[in-house]
Amino acid sequence: MFEARLANGNIFKMIVESIRELVVDVNIDCSTEELSIQCMDSAHVALVSMSLSQSAFDHFRCDRSLSLGLNLPNVSKIFKMMGRDDTMVLKAEDSADKLMLMFENDKSGTIADFELKLMAIEAEQLGVPDTAYKCSISMPSSEFQRIVRDLQVMGDTCKISCTKEGLKFSATGQIGTGNILMRQNVASEKEEDHVTIDMEEPVELNFALRYLNFFTKATPLSPTVILKMSPGLPIVIEYPIEQLGHVKYYLAPKMEE
């Protein structure tokens, strides 16, 4: 029996919204420790790695590890019927062939319950090695979203380079070239506005802006976003969910031919 109760159901809704355009059919893996998802997009260019700790839930029971095969666009439709302040309850028997979702509104006392058929999804799991990245940048997630959106006007590829002068985003296309340079900023009193750049050695990599734009769907989850890069490796873009978990995106680079 798997049963989990999340007082702030909106967190789970935001997690679904942050990945449903990138990965469609996913297994939500339930263990005694957490709910997690690891899934690549159909082109195997990006990988989503989500984790939500059992400590995020007011009640969490998982007798046996389960894999809940779900179509995220369908899950997203169901979440449209969840109120902003609703409590969300997930429930599945061990012989999981369906998932129960319940939305409870404490104020009005209404309870909505939905049953989703589960799918058997054979997904290739990748071993993502723990890497000591050469550059790690923490910045306001809204700033990263704006940069990605603005640079899409200029072209389809973003060069991200981290040097001692700062973090530069560049895009070149038919109409010209755009550069946005961010410098370390830990002066502003609002922690969320800080830009911290830890650079062990300079890194310069190219990425498809289309994917970076998908990733910024996770902006509502976290006021800050963390970018980690090493030469010749996929970038990791991490949206922490308070202390409760994270949504991480790995993106393979575009290599000069």
Binding site: M40, A43, H44, V45, A46, L47, E124, Q125, L126, G127, V128, P129, T157, N206, A208, L233, P234, Y250, A252, P253, K254, M255, E256, E257
Partner: peptide, 14 residues
């Protein structure tokens, strides 16, 4: 022109 790589080149399948 830069060519898109895929993650299989970086992460091993489990």
């Amino acid at each position: 022109k830069s060519k898109q790589t895929t993650l299989g080149g970086f992460f091993a399948a489990k």
